[in-house]
Computed example of a mutant assay.
Amino acid sequence: MIRRVVARLGGPVVRVALVAVALVWMFPVVGLLVASLRPEASNARSGWWTVLTAPAQLTLANYADLMADRAVLGSLWNTVLIAVPSTVLVVVIGAFAAYALAWIEFPGRDLVTLGVVALLVVPVQVALVPVAKLLGGIGLYGSIPGVVAFHVAFGMPFAVFLLRNSFVGMPRDLLEAARLDGGRELRIFWRLVLPISRPAVAALATFQFLWVWNDLLVALVFADEGSAPITVALRSQLRQFGNNVDVLASGAFVSMIVPLVVFFAFQRAFVQGVLAGSTK
């Protein structure tokens, strides 16, 4: 019965339907790109689809103006300074913690694992005010390190949960053989566990990077004007009646390029990491 369902889901009709859904989902992206290539007057006068009959209205002036804006360029750099450390720290610390919870025996290990899983359901909004007071007390509120610290703290439960599930799926005999050969835990972790679990690590890095890069709420609360990322900068460009679509569209498309490049670069490892452990 299951084989028949799987065979039907892999048929040409389902594939055509999936392609159609993908094309529908791509319409907003195409509209955003076309709007970013049209002058402000054209965006205010008609919809982006009119470019099909009047392609001469397309121009790169919006992107030239965007790249000449120091505030936007500074916010892009701030986004990099926030997203990259947040991703690296979550992957590194989460991998060490996940290995300890998966393969190192110590009292209370199951309780710690249960606590990590419980933290997955804690919403970000609950911690905004307490963490803001904490960061203000140590002088990190309104700075890039403060934003990074918040992202690392809230990205850690998911990192430990995902990587631990990947590490637990490794054969125990493989690790025992490495220990019998004289390998220490750090060497086993670095030379054996991480290379085997590379898809899960890539999936975690992709998840974390996309979440931090596209974040607006945390940046609005914890970043000041000098440390604000691109999402906050675009929000500040909003005017009444949205008559600056050219600025918002070009800025939004530039901010979207980097996550798309990251996702497609690690697409295969991302899918393998997400599906790790789902089949036996």
Results as ranks from 00 to 15, higher is better:
Gly137Phe: 03
Leu52Asn: 12
Ala269Cys: 09
Leu216Asn: 11
Thr206Phe: 07
Val126His: 02
Thr59Glu: 01
Gly169Tyr: 04
Val147Cys: 00
Ala20Cys: 10
Lys280His: 05
Arg268Phe: 10
Val14Ser: 04
Val262Glu: 01
Val274Gly: 05
Met256Leu: 11
Leu248Cys: 05
Ala7Ile: 07
Asn62Lys: 10
Thr87Arg: 02
Ile144Lys: 11
Leu180Met: 15
Gly108Arg: 03
Ser86Pro: 04
Leu33Asp: 02
Ala219Trp: 00
Ala178Ser: 11
Leu73Gln: 10
Asn78Val: 10
Val131Phe: 12
Ala20Met: 11
Pro199Leu: 04
Ala228Lys: 09
Val193Arg: 01
Leu174Gln: 09
Arg3Gln: 12
Gly273Gln: 06
Met26Ile: 05
Leu111Ile: 15
Leu234Val: 03
Pro28Asp: 05
Val124Pro: 05
Thr59Phe: 00
Arg38Trp: 00
Lys133Met: 10
Val126Gln: 03
Pro130Cys: 02
Gly136Asp: 09
Trp190Gln: 13
Ala202Glu: 07
Pro199Asn: 07
Ala102Asp: 00
Phe189Arg: 04
Phe209Met: 06
Gly169His: 03
Ala276Pro: 02
Glu176Trp: 15
Ile230Lys: 00
Glu176Asp: 15
Asn165Ala: 14
Gly108Phe: 02
Val80Met: 07
Val29Gly: 10
Gly226Thr: 12
Gly142Lys: 01
Ala17Trp: 08
Met67Asp: 11
Arg38Phe: 05
Ala178Ile: 04
Asn244Met: 08
Val84Phe: 07
Asn244Cys: 07
Arg172Met: 07
Arg198Val: 11
Leu275Asp: 12
Val245Phe: 11
Ile93Lys: 01
Ala203His: 03
Gly11Phe: 02
Val247Gly: 03
Val116Leu: 08
Asp65Gly: 07
Phe253Thr: 12
Ser227Ala: 15
Glu40Val: 13
Val14His: 08
Ala249Thr: 02
Leu134Trp: 13
Val116Arg: 00
Pro39His: 11
Val168Pro: 07
Ala17Asn: 03
Met156Lys: 13
Phe253Cys: 12
Phe207Tyr: 15
Glu185Lys: 03
Ala127Asn: 06
Tyr99Asp: 02
Leu32Met: 11
Arg8Leu: 14
Val201Phe: 12
Val121Asn: 09
Asp69Val: 12
Phe222Pro: 00
Ala149Leu: 14
Pro199Asp: 04
Ile138Ser: 04
Val122Thr: 10
Val122Trp: 11
Ala252Ile: 13
Pro123Met: 11
Val131Ser: 06
Gly10Asn: 14
Gly94Cys: 03
Val274Asp: 03
Phe241Arg: 06
Ala102Pro: 00
Ala68Asn: 09
Leu174Pro: 00
Leu134Phe: 13
Ala71Tyr: 14
Tyr63Gln: 06
Val124Gln: 14
Ala100Cys: 06
Val122Pro: 11
Arg109Gly: 10
Val201Gln: 12
Ala54Asn: 05
Ala102Thr: 01
Val168Met: 07
Leu186Asp: 13
Val152Trp: 06
Phe241Trp: 04
Pro171Glu: 09
Val122Leu: 12
Phe266Gln: 03
Ala71Thr: 14
Lys280Cys: 03
Gly155Gln: 01
Gly182Phe: 15
Phe263Ile: 08
Phe27Leu: 06
Arg179Thr: 10
Leu140Met: 08
Ala102Glu: 00
Leu163Asn: 00
Thr113Gly: 15
Asp224Trp: 10
Val221His: 01
Ala95Val: 01
Ala20Asp: 06
Ala83Lys: 00
Gly108Asp: 03
Ala64Phe: 05
Arg4His: 12
Leu60Glu: 09
Tyr141Ala: 05
